[in-house]
Nucleic acid binder design. Structure first.
Lengths: 201, 201
DNA sequence: AACTATACGGAACGATCGTTCGTTCCTTAT
DNA sequence: ATAAGGAACGAACGATCGTTCCGTATAGTT
């Protein structure tokens, strides 16, 4: 078998991480296996893990890549909108689209990781928790801006809005996917719009 | 080592399932291991699995027991309330209490199982999906009754209410547990009350 | 042209996975 | 009293897990 030239090296690692993201979005970060990933990449287990050190380092790289993918799909398009309520609306749209398009073949990656590590300590727990806190912070900032603009119902707490949006997207995506309910994302979108005081479209 | 008398036999199986529920609520149904469960029960792997046939049968029994535990903790106390909005309110209270008390050491079992099997076919997927559909149906029935009573906002669909309650509880529980946010359940309760048109307490 | 660093393969490691087998013990029914 | 059924054991199975070691081919440096 021909060896890969060393110029492909960097892209090879990235290729491994991307494949691992897809695999782990279905099987979970904990269900991710070096053997199966190596097989899918048509390379040896030792060659694969040698790039990362050990499995935990691979998992952390995979998680970081998944967060990156989420950010690109949801935050980046919404960042073009005006801060405040308009941006919240754009986030909701991009978020739902992201879930609908199947950016992750196994459903929202961060939700999967959240459930896997919500009761287990370790560096992966910390990484997932940090990512979720960061995202909740982004949502809260936008909600606060909207509140300052008077675009939110009086007395509505930005932190509550952020947490509610996250709960709805996360919970709704899972339940819809599990039960095969094709209207779930529409319902979730409507609920999220309701949460920020937008009229049903 | 003294053998267990055969009169304990029935309770022994139940004991195994209960221990497995606690284990699987942390590690997931997929992360459940015959070896570790047997060790915790101080019995042999073969003796344990012999009771169920194979691992999948054990997992299904564990799932059924977890659903039973949830039903007892949430539905049973709420069933005493008047059908309709009052019962929905009672469900919300019991649900939050159930999450707060840590009926499952690793967070809501059904949510964990939902995430594990939302992208993987098989009999376990079907069992989890059936359980979730059944629960959504219960919620929807109560919401419809509330709607018929005129206790819900006009135009509010019972199925939407049911789905939203489920999303909020499921997503909120996970996020709160992951980030260590002690106010998450209070927030979730407030959101759920808002979803059924109840005033903040 | 020689050297260094690294990416990868191949083989093997001990551990653990789920499962199967045959045996022993206890309870219950005959 | 004896036969039958079932529960649990210990031992072993092949498979797979993550990991380690070493050889080797390649890329970049001097």
């Amino acid at each position: 078998m021909p060896r890969r030239s060393a110029t492909d090296v960097a892209s090879n690692r990235a290729r491994a991480v991307e494949a691992a993201v897809d695999l782990a979005s279905v099987e979970g970060l904990e269900g991710l296996t070096i053997g199966r990933l190596a097989e899918q990449l048509a390379m040896s287990k030792s060659g694969l893990i040698g790039r990362f050190g050990d499995k935990e380092a691979l998992q952390r790289a995979v998680l970081a890549a998944a967060v990156e993918r989420f950010t690109e799909a949801v935050w980046q398009p919404a960042a073009r909108a005006t801060p405040g309520l308009a941006r919240l609306e754009a986030i909701v749209d991009a978020w739902i689209e992201h879930l609908r398009d199947g950016v992750f073949p196994g459903g929202c990656f961060v939700t999967t990781a959240s459930v896997e590590y919500d009761a287990r300590p370790g560096s992966l727990h910390d990484d997932v928790a940090a990512a979720v806190r960061r995202w909740l912070g982004v949502l809260e900032d936008e909600a606060r801006r909207a509140s300052d603009d008077g675009a939110l119902a009086p007395g509505r707490e930005p932190a509550d809005v952020a947490f509610e949006l996250h709960s709805l997207a996360s919970g709704g995506s899972v339940a819809g996917r599990l039960t095969g309910d094709s209207t779930a994302l529409d319902r979730t979108r409507a609920s999220m719009r309701r949460a920020i005081g937008l009229p049903p479209e």
